[in-house]
Amino acid sequence: MTWFETLGAMLSSPLMQRALIAAVLVGAAAPVVGTFLVQRRLALMGDGLGHVALTGVALGWLVGTWAGLVPQDALAIPGAVVAALIGSVAIEWVRARGRTSGDLALALMFYGGIAGGVLLIKLAGGTNANLVSYLFGSISTVSTGDLWWTAGLAVGVLLVGLGLRHVLFAVSHDEEFARGSGLPVTALNMVVAAMSALTVTIAMRVVGLLLVSALMIVPVAVAQLVVGSFSRVMALASGIGVAVSVVGLSITYWEDIPPGATIVLLAIGLYALAAVTRPLLTRRGAGDAPHDPHPELPDDVALPVVGAGPGAADCRPGAPGGATR
């Protein structure tokens, strides 16, 4: 069988088709949200929400067991959506009340989410093994129902993220100015938080809750090394997200390795590559914009020294020969 035929076989497998569609949608949507999160220095928010979503998965499982649903985890994704949304609103609420306790609230959420998930899954009659597929992703088990959820939410996140990108940039870039422009800042912050929550739940199947944030953040980290404007970072990050998701997933069709981890390691590999090659790329263009990092401020005192040569230290009267520094 040639390489080309293998590719054809991969693309004609319904399971792989579903997985690829999910990967493309998640890979495109997650970095769009991630760009706003990185801009607001909330890169770890996706992680916090991922942990909370785990409690939601277990809660959905518990409700499913009580209601006697046939696949016990039929309500896992709706449960995750609800829990992550509540968590995102809680994080924004804490952030709005006082910045200092923001990371503490995030920490409480991390541990509370994991502990709640482990406890509830036991109550639901499941085992921790059931949670593992949510923690690390199991794209091979994507059902048609899951695909609809993923597609609907990803398209929604993309539409909101791109449609409102100017105003979300304004709020993320300079929150005070946005407030002083009469923008509904709190509501817009909630929109970003809710978008993160939804992204976490749709990426859950592809890369798993523990690695969800990587798909949101790492492509942005790569893109900001390469391009110098917000809109280009967003576009490039989205492209990188799609590329690593599709390539990572395709590799797992031939090799028996976990797709989520493969996708994330590919993205981090790209980051390393960009970080190493960037000095080579920027040196070429360095000549046309000589740049002094010091701001153009007038001196506070009249300085007599014009050329700071070896004798510059002499202008300190009474300095003991500059023996020690």
């Binding site: 801009q39 993320s172 870039h173 300079d174």
Partner: peptide
């Protein structure tokens, strides 16, 4: 403001 990790023109 000091700005986040994403450049803006």
């Amino acid at each position: 403001p000091a700005g986040g990790g994403v450049p803006a023109t």
